[in-house]
Simulated scan of single mutants.
Amino acid sequence: MKRMKLSELTGNEILAQSLMTWDYQIILPEGVVLKKEYISKIEEMGILEVYVKEDQANEIAILKNDIEKTIKRKVKSILERHTYQNNKELQGLTQAADEIITNILDEKEVIEKVFDIRERSADIYEHSISLSSMAILTALRLKLDKSVIHDIGVGCLLHDIGLRYTTLDYEGKSMEDMKPEALAEYKKHPVYGYTSVKDEDWISDEVKKIILYHHERLDGSGFPLKLKEAEIPFSCQIVAVCDAFDEMICGIAQRRSKVYEAVEYLKSFKNVKYNGKIVDAFLSFTAVYPAGSHVLTSDGEEAIVVSQNKDFQDRPVIRIIRDKNGQKLKEEKILDLVKVLNVYIEKGLE
């Protein structure tokens, strides 16, 4: 699956994700062939980009698409009905977290796989579900207790509830570019969220801390309390790593980044801002170049990532589509970069 701008479409691409209205009415279903007249109509609706299928790409997602959509509908419905200190309906999020955990565990050899996590738009509900999935999988790899994993799942679904009490436009806007008053307001959202649920006895203290501490950093550079490593619970440190990554690839309060850029960011601040053990666990299942990505090899050839290699997240199986002179290949050329050691991926391509 590949995200493409409408201006890049030439027609006859196959839609990889259904196009829906805000209330989940299907405009075009997954699998439809995008004829040129469809593209014009989509553009008129203000949709700027779509996901199309990439041939021979074997994508592996943490949650299956239909399951993620079902959980997203439930989470969106619960959170949109929520008002300040009217928290009874939020209890439904505990069931949603358990559904995520159950579906992850239902995946065969889930602990052994490398998953294709890809950049996408800054939908706050999708962000919460993806964060929950990634943090749960990280906690499973770290062999944490089931009750802690459950709290992490619930905490992730609730972590940004404080953003509902702000009127800020944070999509694709870097914190560095925010006006001082807007930045100050944005940095209060963990406090707003915590305050709204702190008296609820059905929410564990662990979940409440995740809501309040998910932007704290080990070196004290986070917010809102500027805590240091010893003051930040381990579960909150897990959420912090996964949240930082997902915010980068979504473009939440920053410019949207490619997956490989977010991976490099975590590596750069490992044992500085983020717990090194957690970063290693997270990166152990995260493909640097998701299936369907266009990449440039060290030989100057353009390729598409076909599938991943366990334990070698930056050395996938690729299909060469253009030679170093930019000419299309007439015959199929597949390289497994674990076996072909003198070739590596130079960079990702747009």
Rank of each mutant, 00 (worst) to 15 (best):
P29T: 10
E206H: 09
A96V: 15
L296C: 14
I42R: 04
A184G: 08
E350W: 15
D246R: 06
L6T: 01
K310H: 14
K74H: 03
T297K: 13
I152F: 05
L63D: 03
E301M: 05
G300R: 13
L15R: 00
T195D: 15
R120D: 14
T286P: 05
D55C: 02
K324Y: 14
I111M: 13
L212Y: 13
I334N: 10
I62H: 01
E331T: 11
F312E: 10
A240M: 07
Q91H: 00
E301L: 09
A61E: 09
K143H: 06
Q25S: 15
K5Y: 10
Y265I: 07
P180D: 03
S132M: 05
S174R: 04
K173S: 12
Y186D: 08
L349V: 01
I100L: 00
N275F: 07
G251C: 13
V340A: 00
A281K: 11
S221E: 09
G162R: 04
H189D: 00
N58W: 06
N275L: 05
G193P: 11
H159M: 05
T297Q: 03
T94I: 12
I345A: 10
V259H: 05
I136F: 02
Q254D: 09
N58R: 02
V263E: 00
I104Y: 09
R164Y: 09
L341R: 15
L296F: 05
A287S: 12
P29F: 04
V340I: 15
M134N: 08
H214G: 09
R3I: 04
K74I: 01
A139R: 02
E126S: 06
S147Q: 12
R315E: 03
K2I: 11
K198N: 02
Y186T: 00
Y51H: 01
S128W: 04
I136A: 03
L225E: 10
G326E: 06
I104P: 06
V197T: 06
A244R: 04
E216C: 14
Q308I: 14
D106Q: 11
M248E: 11
A230E: 13
K187M: 14
Y344S: 10
I161W: 03
G292S: 15
M20K: 13
K173C: 04
L105P: 04
A122M: 10
R120I: 06
I318P: 15
V340E: 08
S77G: 13
V191C: 01
L137P: 11
L335N: 01
G220P: 10
N309P: 12
N275Y: 12
A262Q: 03
